[in-house]
């Protein structure tokens, strides 16, 4: 099969996946679970097929690689289709785990660990906290029923179309591409040391800037979250001394 045929196959598979997610998306009533599963399975199979055969003359990934790939894609699909935010968050943990596994297999151990620590350890915890903060309390009877914006999607068809076109275009790009063969990266002292040297040698200033960015964000988050009440509920400013008419009613600029 030539690349063009593979590409058309991939388009079909992407369409199947998009359909599957379309059926799986929450939209008020019952979900057509069967259709979702069917199309999802077709898409998963197709992904495997493309991965092993469609990407030109590259190395064939291992079974473990394939499993983690499917796990990542499937969990991501669940994140965007699950009705309950908490479950979405948990599925996202799975995505992160799978991704870091893939990274390990690609030789990026340090990045994989950082990914695990930062995402699973920090970011996801924040998400869960926020989800808990942002749900009605347990005494509230309504909290048991689904809120409207979780139960209903917004224009699922258009969104899926956009996602499909994007995925299809990118896949087509990958499939038709002539992949170059390159030498493996030399890492005499191991991946961590190599990445560290790379960061501090080539990216020293961006690293510093990233530190600054983190600090700014921290302060920003504090400043935003500290504000308890909207402005109009704050006590009024004390009245000012009477002044001349010029510049009397001044508005901030």
């Amino acid at each position: 099969m030539n690349a063009v045929a593979w590409a058309y196959l991939a388009y079909g598979l992407m369409a199947a996946g998009a359909l599957g997610i379309y059926f799986a998306l929450p939209r008020g009533g019952r979900i057509n679970r069967a259709a979702a599963l069917l199309f999802g399975a077709i898409a998963a199979g197709g992904i495997l097929l493309v991965m092993y055969q469609g990407l030109g003359d590259t190395a064939r990934p291992s079974v473990v690689f394939a499993v983690f790939s499917l796990l990542a894609v499937g969990s991501a699909a669940r994140v965007i289709t699950h009705r309950k935010p908490v479950y979405s968050a948990l599925y996202f943990v799975v995505v992160v785990l799978a991704t870091s596994a893939l990274a390990v297999m690609a030789g990026a151990e340090f990045l994989a660990m950082a990914l695990l620590i930062v995402y699973a350890g920090a970011i996801l915890v924040t998400y869960v906290f926020v989800i808990m903060l942002a749900q009605q309390s347990a005494d509230d009877p309504e909290s048991l029923s689904m809120v409207d914006y979780d139960a209903n999607s917004r224009e699922p068809a258009t969104a899926m179309l956009a996602g499909f076109v994007l995925a299809a275009t990118l896949s087509g790009l990958f499939i038709q591409r002539k992949w170059p063969s390159v030498a493996a990266i030399e890492e005499p002292a191991g991946n961590t040391v190599a990445v560290g040297q790379e960061l501090l040698a080539r990216y020293a200033i961006p690293v510093e800037l990233a530190g600054v960015l983190l600090m700014v964000a921290m302060i920003g988050a504090l400043a935003i979250a500290r504000r308890h009440l909207p402005n109009d509920m704050l006590p009024a400013r004390p009245p000012e001394l009477p002044v001349g008419e010029i510049g009397k009613t001044v508005e901030p600029f």
Partner: peptide, 20 residues
Amino acid sequence: IQGYAMGMVIGLLVIVVAVL
């Protein structure tokens, strides 16, 4: 927000197609 995001996606697609 999603309206704007849609615009961004369309833009992204245009760029990808152009590069392609």
